[in-house]
Amino acid sequence: MREVTENICCSEVKVVIGEGSLSKLLDIKDHKIGVIYSKKLNIDNVIKYLSDPYLISIEDGENAKDLSNIMLLVNELFERNFDRSDYIIAVGGGTVTDIAGFVASIYLRGINLVNVPTTFLGMVDAAIGGKNGVNFNNIKNIIGTFYQPTMIISDLTFLETLPTEELKKGLAEVIKYGLTLDKELYDFLSLNKDEVLNKDKLVLEELIYRSTIDKLAVVKEDERETRGIRIVLNFGHTIGHAIEAGSGFKVPHGYAISVGMVCEAKIAEELGYAEEGVVEDVLWLLQLYGLPYDISQIDAPLDLKTALNAIEMDKKHRRNVILMPFPTRIGNWKKVEVPLNVIKGFAEQCLTK
């Protein structure tokens, strides 16, 4: 078991990683506890560490991220007289941590939040960093808050029955860290494919740990995306979110980001920001893990107009440019202002099957 503690702005965030880390829930005493969790989950292994929790099950998936659902949850807390000293524990994947984090941030202007990600994607990305969002008008996470959890518990027990396909969806985000921030992580992934895909616990713990410290280091420097540093975490996401929107959110996030990283690496190379060979390095690692790298490998139909419209609503959009984090070489990146029409032109080429 490993612990990482980081001070982010005004909050101390503790992350506990490894088998048995759910026992840290015993530290929560003498408070009301609301557990927001996916209806798909059996959470007996969580609630056994809690005293008289109030259980709130919700639907999973992007369609659940709607403001009407948020207000239903706020009403649940209000009716049970939750106060600022009480806790919300989010148990589930990225959808659940997004929804629960948003509710925790707006109820009484903020109550205690503990994230318990149950997916690999949640453990390496979604549960970390304090971003919470809901969708609006077919645009992903356009309404949201920045709100840090008190604690994040990544217990590897949840991954024991995780299908390989679900593991791969999270690997796209780990690969993102390696490509832009952490060459040692890129090399580790290159050398440990079999152990990763066979869910070797020590190897998965290392991936979660490295992803956690990489992301927290960025978030500490630029929690609210005001300094142009945190945008590195969005490598592959401008095109990736467009793919998600264009498919009506039928394409899993990890697969959309995987294709998005290839597209954006090609743009970086075409515009002269990436060293020669970066695209090949991106392709090689994605292919090694069997992740999609071309839009033709995405099964769901894609509405190109909706996808291109989503780019205009990208949160990195500033007037007529989009701030893009381009990989310059493995483990390094550069912030670039790219005209919106240029990005849309490249995206149209990339997303045409």
Score class of each variant (00 low, 15 high):
Tyr186Gln: 12
Arg2Gly: 00
Glu275Gly: 13
Gln148Trp: 03
Asn320His: 13
Leu50Lys: 07
Asn138Arg: 11
Val16Asn: 11
Leu22Trp: 03
Ile139Gly: 00
Met313Thr: 02
Gly20Leu: 01
Leu207Asp: 00
Thr145Trp: 07
Ser258Tyr: 11
Lys29Glu: 13
Val13Glu: 01
Asn132Leu: 02
Ile47Thr: 15
Asp194Gly: 08
Thr328Pro: 11
Arg80Trp: 09
Tyr147Asn: 00
Gly101Leu: 00
Ser57Asn: 10
Lys168Gln: 13
Arg230Gly: 06
Val15Tyr: 01
Ala104Glu: 05
Ala64Phe: 05
Ala126Cys: 06
Phe326Ala: 14
Gly122Ser: 06
Lys29Ser: 12
Ala245Tyr: 02
Phe102Glu: 00
Cys350Pro: 03
Gly178Trp: 09
Leu26Asp: 10
Asn69Pro: 08
Glu76Val: 12
Leu22Asp: 03
Lys183Val: 11
Gly94Phe: 04
Pro301His: 06
Leu181Glu: 13
Asn42Trp: 00
Lys316Met: 05
Lys24Asp: 06
Glu12Asp: 14
Gly94Leu: 07
Asn138Leu: 05
Ile213Lys: 15
Leu25Arg: 07
Val218Ala: 08
Thr180Arg: 06
Leu156His: 01
Glu19Lys: 14
Gly129Gln: 08
Glu275Thr: 03
Met1Val: 01
Ile330Pro: 07
Ile322Gln: 11
Lys24Met: 09
Glu275Arg: 14
Ile8Pro: 08
Leu207Val: 01
Val174Lys: 07
Leu121Asn: 03
Tyr107Gln: 11
Thr352Gly: 00
Tyr54Val: 15
Gln287Thr: 07
Glu269Val: 05
Asn192Thr: 13
Lys353Pro: 14
Phe249Asn: 00
Gly18Cys: 08
Leu204His: 03
Phe188Arg: 01
Leu121Tyr: 03
Leu50Val: 07
Val218His: 05
Gly240Arg: 09
Tyr107Gly: 12
Thr97Ala: 06
Asp299Thr: 14
